[in-house]
């Protein structure tokens, strides 16, 4: 049984090399139940890589990661089983273009959790309702707006009832007028008590919803704290420079 106490996600001393490139240089990150942690930082600072290490889409070169009490990096861990507890949402949505919204959400319910089709689709429909897209269940990704596609992608992840959700720049591929809908869905998810790690530069959302903001640069966590502290009164020079830069947009 997973422990009831302690962080849901605990990463310690994470290193990642791509060949000669040292991308993560000892990152520690703990995320507690119902916490929303925001990760910001300049391009190439390793935010996506860190997120992708958490569900082993990327294999860290060193360190330890537990999610919901499961040792993610242990060779004996059934990673496919563990991944069901870790939802992930991508910048490019990555919906399956040959399946309807419902099919997208139901696929893992059927093929991973082994639910019979009717039950899987029932559950998928409820997940789509949570992102207010029940009426689009029969649409293919190509027939949906970017914002709707991203909400379907969120439904695909939450249908598996994960313990934590990882978002990698979920709104940065969207036209400005579509960002609101996705942020609203994330907000509702947060209010339902979901633990979340969000890589994003939506400062308004961070101020309103984040418990903690983590600033990364050069493969390290440079500074972290409450949103008001990081955005309003950063202690580190690099953080100040970065916040100044993104605030001007």
């Amino acid at each position: 049984m997973p422990k009831a106490t302690g962080p849901i996600v605990e990463a310690r001393g994470i290193h990642k090399h791509f060949g000669a490139l040292h991308v993560l240089k000892g990152v520690d990150l703990a995320v507690h139940e119902r916490e929303l942690v925001f990760v910001i930082g300049p391009s190439g600072s390793g935010k996506s890589t860190l997120l992708r290490c958490l569900n082993r889409l990327e294999e860290p070169s060193g360190g330890a990661i537990t999610v919901d009490g499961i040792d993610i990096l242990d060779r004996r861990t059934d990673i496919n089983k563990a991944r069901q507890r870790i939802g992930m949402v991508f910048q490019a949505f990555n919906l399956y273009p040959h399946m309807t919204a419902l099919g997208n959400v139901a696929l893992a319910l059927r093929k991973v959790q082994g639910l019979p089709r009717a039950m899987a689709e029932d559950k998928a429909r409820r997940a789509l309702e949570r992102v207010h897209l029940a009426d689009r269940a029969g649409h293919y990704p190509g027939q949906l707006s970017g914002g709707q596609q991203q909400r379907v992608a969120i439904a695909r992840a939450i249908a598996l009832e994960p313990r934590v959700m990882l978002f990698d720049e979920p709104t940065s591929a969207l036209d400005p007028e579509l960002v609101g809908g996705v942020l609203a869905a994330m907000r509702e998810l947060r209010e339902s008590g979901m633990t979340m790690v969000v890589v994003s530069h939506e400062m308004g959302f961070a101020r309103a919803a984040a418990d903690r903001v983590v600033f990364m640069d050069g493969g390290r966590i440079v500074e972290e704290g409450q949103p008001e502290a990081i955005f309003g009164n950063p202690q580190q020079e690099r953080t100040r420079a970065f916040i100044g830069q993104i605030s001007r947009h």
Partner: peptide, 17 residues
């Protein structure tokens, strides 16, 4: 696209499915 693999794998689907 690689993202298709990653999306599917992130939901716990194995290589063959």
């Amino acid at each position: 696209p690689k993202g298709q693999w990653e999306a599917a794998r992130s939901t716990g689907l194995g290589f063959f499915p």
